[in-house]
Simulated assay, not measured.
Amino acid sequence: MEKSVIVKNVSKKYKMYTKNSEKLLDLILPKSYGKSFYALHDISFEAEKGDVIGIIGVNGSGKSTLSNIISGIIPPTSGTVQVNGEASLIAIQSGLKNELTGRENIELKCLMLGFDKKQIIALTPQIIEFADIGDFIDQPVKTYSSGMRSRLGFAISIHIDPDILVIDEALSVGDRTFADKCLDKMNEFKERGKTIFFISHSIGQMKKFCEKALWVQYGHVEQYGLMSEVMPNYEAFINKYKKMSKAEKQQFKKEVEEKRMVQA
């Protein structure tokens, strides 16, 4: 099978400071200040054309950071990401300019992706119809609810027809009818052999839609494989975590964070 995404030894590091003066000193002096936090550390996996991969993991594990790297929104600190085709991220806050109207955002996004005026004129009514946000299409995006942002973002992304679709919690807001419409559209993409990465807190949606699972556990890959093999292990971890006492949970989180934080 042809590879669509190859992620090799990817890490993403951020600097964290206890006070503003540390940040300034880190910029002007040779000695490093602050600590380095690894949102992702040594992530490696491959996706093939037609793969539908659910990215699972508890909050703070680095799922959204990974989705942004795959989509080219942010670069990795180290490692390589090879994306064979056009990737598009669908997230509640991604790619929409608050001061522009929905209609203006459609035009801007399409222009940035190389569509000409004629193509944009043809696509715009289809995008507006799918988003189904009524007169808000001509209002500034800053007035939108999270559900309306998600609708517009999803509508734009699927109609520009990317090779690789990255969906980050975009179906967690809004009504069930729209979510079902989106899943139908995603199934069309699936049938056409496109690669889809799907992030959702809904384990039911994951099991129903995804064939593979990438379990990201506090910045590293815990397991990658068939959904039927990975999800039971993830659910067992979740059940075990829920049974921990408050003190045990705090200790567990502390140990994990210490592993992700290193002195600069």
Score class of each variant (00 low, 15 high):
5 V>N: 02
5 V>E: 05
7 V>S: 05
8 K>T: 10
8 K>P: 03
11 S>Q: 01
12 K>R: 06
14 Y>A: 04
14 Y>W: 02
16 M>C: 04
18 T>H: 14
18 T>Q: 15
21 S>A: 12
24 L>I: 15
24 L>G: 08
26 D>R: 07
28 I>P: 03
29 L>E: 05
29 L>K: 13
30 P>I: 10
36 S>V: 07
36 S>K: 10
38 Y>N: 11
40 L>Q: 13
44 S>E: 07
47 A>V: 06
49 K>G: 11
51 D>L: 01
53 I>G: 02
53 I>Q: 01
61 S>T: 12
61 S>M: 08
66 L>W: 11
67 S>L: 12
67 S>N: 09
69 I>W: 08
74 I>E: 06
76 P>K: 15
80 T>A: 08
84 N>S: 03
94 S>G: 05
98 N>F: 14
98 N>C: 12
103 R>M: 11
105 N>M: 00
109 K>E: 12
111 L>T: 00
112 M>L: 15
112 M>P: 04
116 D>M: 05
116 D>L: 02
117 K>I: 01
118 K>A: 01
121 I>E: 15
129 E>G: 06
129 E>L: 06
129 E>N: 13
130 F>D: 11
137 I>C: 04
138 D>S: 15
139 Q>S: 14
140 P>G: 06
147 G>P: 04
147 G>E: 05
150 S>E: 02
150 S>I: 01
151 R>G: 11
153 G>W: 01
153 G>L: 05
155 A>C: 09
159 H>S: 02
165 L>S: 01
171 L>K: 04
173 V>G: 00
175 D>F: 01
179 A>K: 11
182 C>Q: 00
190 K>F: 04
190 K>Q: 07
194 K>N: 00
195 T>A: 09
197 F>W: 01
202 S>R: 10
206 M>T: 12
207 K>N: 09
207 K>L: 07
209 F>C: 04
210 C>G: 06
212 K>L: 04
212 K>F: 05
215 W>I: 00
216 V>A: 05
220 H>Q: 10
221 V>I: 14
224 Y>C: 03
230 V>Y: 01
231 M>I: 15
238 I>M: 13
238 I>R: 09
241 Y>F: 08
247 A>S: 13
249 K>W: 00
249 K>G: 00
250 Q>E: 14
252 F>H: 09
256 V>E: 14
258 E>K: 13
259 K>D: 10
261 M>D: 12
264 A>V: 13
